[in-house]
């Protein structure tokens, strides 16, 4: 694996499976009475958030603490961060403080890559969401959740599973990361959105595109609803919230068209009544809460693999049937 996690496009199939399998091991830790591993003791991880995201930051923070890392939360939001020098100056500061890894959330697409490829900082960079570009750990936790439901077992991929991603693909970093990763894992991805919310040049992406949700749902093993901000209608991406919901929202009637085994996902935060009806979000086939739990396991796995290096994640208490990380790391 590379030293940074900036884009899921950088992950090979082996990398992706290694992360998913390691996350399964981490999930076991989280079920123990003592939920802590000593793996990252003495290592410093900085959560550098230029945008508010309590959900993502908390998830990373829990993951870091379970690995015994020293955690620093560096919220750049609110300070005058309209100009870019702040990114460089902040990076130089973190470097001086000896950060081993920086988890960065930034409103500008490409900021994590800039950080990773600059000489401002030497630690590992983990992209926790950049602009409308990528959100790799979200895609990994989504894939982890899908695998548990659709093809459970260590070493397994998502070959042939049909995944439908619905909503504001144009502005979605979650969608971009998911398309790359799910393609790598062998899934067949279909994006569904009004044409205004489909990125220009999507023909070159490894996925299909449809404007017709009803036609796609019966052929979906998982459907992921993306958040659609109401303000988009002010920029004429769609006429009204009502029309959006009618054409692209997941209500009970539409959900009934899904195959029995299909799951309903949402990366959050949801706009209930917009892209998803409450009764579906809270239904048995919804994995929305589970995704949050899995997020911690995935982030533990990513940080462990980027920083922990060669030692097995769970040396003393590892169950016999679990594969060691080394087995996958060729």
């Amino acid at each position: 694996m590379k030293r940074h996690l900036v884009s899921t496009a950088d992950l090979t199939l082996d990398d992706a499976l290694l992360i998913l399998d390691t996350a399964e091991e981490m999930a076991q830790v989280s079920t123990r009475a003592v939920k802590k591993l000593p793996t990252l003791r003495g290592r410093t991880v900085v959560n550098l958030f230029f945008e508010d995201s309590t959900r993502t930051r908390t998830s990373f923070e829990v993951a870091e603490k379970r690995l015994s890392a020293d955690v620093i939360n560096f919220s750049a939001k609110g300070s005058s961060v309209s100009k870019g020098e702040t990114l460089k100056d902040t990076a130089l500061t973190l470097q001086a403080m000896g950060a081993d890894a920086v988890v960065i959330r930034h409103g500008a697409s490409g900021a994590p890559q800039r950080l990773a490829e600059s000489d401002w900082l030497h630690g590992s960079v983990v992209n926790a969401g950049d602009g409308t570009h990528e959100h790799p750990t979200q895609a990994l936790l989504d894939a982890f959740t899908m695998r548990r439901h659709l093809n459970p077992g260590l070493g397994r991929d998502l070959n042939g599973r049909r995944i439908t991603i619905v909503g504001d693909v144009l502005h979605s970093r979650v969608a971009r990361s998911n398309v790359h990763l799910l393609h790598t894992l062998g899934a067949e991805v279909t994006l569904v959105a009004p044409p205004t919310l489909v990125p220009y040049g999507v023909e070159s992406w490894p996925c299909a595109v449809s404007y017709d949700l009803d036609a796609v749902l019966p052929k979906s093993d998982a459907v992921m609803m993306l958040r659609v901000q109401r303000e988009r209608m002010n920029a004429a991406f769609f006429p009204t919230q009502r029309e959006y919901s009618l054409r692209y929202g997941l209500d009970a009637k539409r959900a009934a068209a899904l195959p029995e085994h299909a799951i309903v996902m949402h990366p959050g935060p949801m706009v209930r009544g917009m892209e998803i009806a409450s009764e579906i979000a809270d239904s048995a086939r919804s994995t929305i809460v589970e995704q949050v739990t899995n997020g911690v396991s995935i982030r533990m796995a990513v940080l462990y693999l980027l920083l922990g290096g060669s030692e097995p994640a769970l040396s003393p208490a590892r169950p016999a049937e679990s594969r060691t990380t080394e087995e996958h790391s060729k």
Binding site: S109, R173, W205
Partner: peptide, 18 residues
């Protein structure tokens, strides 16, 4: 707008300049 609107802008998540 941040860059030429094309396949690259779509992938990079940078607003296109058609």
């Amino acid at each position: 707008a941040q860059m030429n609107e094309g396949t690259v802008s779509g992938e990079l998540g940078l607003r296109g300049w058609p």
